[in-house]
Simulated scan of single mutants.
Amino acid sequence: MFTATDFIPKKYTSTIENGNFEWSAPSNIALVKYWGKKDNQIPANPSVSFTLNNCKTITKLGFEKRDISPEVSGPLNVTSFSFDLLFEGKPKEDFKPKIQKFLERIEVYLPFLKNYHFTIDTQNTFPHSSGIASSASGMAALAMNFMSLERALNPEMTNEYFYRKASFLARLGSGSACRSVKGNVVVWGNQANIGGSSDLFGVEFPHTIHANFKNYQDTILLVDKGEKQVSSTVGHDLMHNHPYAERRFAQAHENLDKLTAIFESGNLDEFIKVVESEALTLHAMMMTSMPYFILMKPNTLQIINAIWKFRNETQIPVCFTLDAGANVHVLYPENVSDKVLQFIQDELVVFCQNGQYICDQIGEGAIAL
């Protein structure tokens, strides 16, 4: 059983003065939702997600050893982190506090961080403020880069440890980021029938996945591209003392068990029931918290009703899921893509802000560039 202390390095066997790494990491969409957390980004319930392919963050990390005079402070007594942050090539000061907080959280696991000056240059393949969670892809990409530097300092590191620790670190930046590191279906959180599952990091779903779910499609309808109405941190905190929280956490375990069987059998009707119920439950928890929020927009409901009507009339296995916002993820098997995309263009685009939507599908996780 892994504990956080397993990720504290003993010593490094190599040195490196400067260089750079570059990784892309994708966003992901949860099927069983994580909502509610304990201290240190530990989830209150397990979750499982599809890793996306096209919606990703590309981050380049430049690093150089800091010139610290021993008589001033000594190389190990540096008190501050040193980094520049660029977003799409331009300085982005308002992102810096989040990176600063991330570095503070992970320093015990990466004790070299204060010895270097970093230049973090990041960009997304999807429009900024498109309502797609970029914290998951962004923190995962940054974690991969930091792990590449640690592997340069410790070349004996195994691949398994590299990816597991990257997921562990990403989680400390943004919980769902731990599901954006490796694998096309990822489980995060302790679950009895998922071997190796952990609250500390995401693991690749270890059981059989039916051919029905290979190359599964996700078309993201951008209903509202504005700033998030409720930050994730505030939203998760609403689960403390929530009247329905304990039953919700139990339901997540039950639904993950159901999905494990569904992934093996390929039963799309049952898949739709679990996934849509999970999406609506997430929003129900926010509507019944104190303070309470309605994050759907009228057009979100129009899209949901249109999907139900279309599925009922055509028997095409298309369904929706939602994150903590108004945008709709339309999920469907690859073999019905033509019909579903036609339906989206004919009936759903009208409900999207400026007619915008993004076509995506299941991907593999982070990639070194």
Rank of each mutant, 00 (worst) to 15 (best):
M239Q: 03
S130E: 06
S135M: 11
E160W: 10
R66H: 09
A324F: 00
E107F: 08
F7L: 07
L295M: 15
C55D: 03
S337F: 10
P43E: 01
S148H: 14
K297R: 15
L85F: 15
F263W: 06
N40H: 12
T13A: 13
K98F: 15
K96N: 04
A177M: 03
D67G: 04
T125C: 07
E150Y: 03
V203K: 01
F162S: 05
V350Q: 14
T281R: 06
Q345M: 09
V318H: 01
L149E: 01
P9V: 07
R66W: 08
L86G: 02
D84A: 12
S231I: 12
F162M: 11
L200S: 02
F81E: 03
I316P: 01
A252W: 00
A250N: 13
L200P: 00
G183E: 00
E156H: 13
H128Y: 13
W23Y: 15
N212F: 04
I132Q: 00
E64S: 10
L113F: 04
V234N: 13
K228A: 11
M1F: 10
V32N: 02
N215G: 08
E264A: 10
I29N: 00
R66I: 09
M144Y: 04
G89S: 05
F7M: 07
T158M: 12
A326R: 03
S265D: 09
E313T: 08
S180F: 04
G62S: 12
I362E: 05
P155V: 14
S337H: 10
Q100P: 06
L341F: 09
K90P: 05
I99H: 00
L259Q: 01
M147D: 02
D84N: 12
K228I: 12
D121Y: 07
E150N: 05
S49T: 07
G131A: 08
L301G: 04
G226D: 10
S27L: 06
T219W: 05
D323T: 06
P75L: 14
V108E: 12
A284D: 11
Y216E: 07
A252G: 03
E227S: 12
K38G: 10
G226M: 12
N53H: 12
G183N: 03
E254H: 12
I209H: 05
H117Y: 12
E254G: 07
F168M: 10
R66S: 09
G195C: 10
Y357N: 01
I58E: 03
V187W: 00
E246F: 08
F146Y: 03
K214L: 11
F83P: 00
Q345T: 11
T233L: 14
F249W: 13
N212V: 05
G266Q: 04
P75F: 14
T233N: 14
E313K: 11
L172K: 03
H283T: 12
K101E: 15
I29D: 01
R179H: 08
P43G: 02
N327D: 11
E107I: 07
E276M: 15
E254A: 11
S277E: 15
K33V: 06
V230M: 08
D257Y: 07
T15D: 14
R311K: 08
H283Q: 13
N40I: 07
A152M: 13
Y34S: 01
Q302K: 15
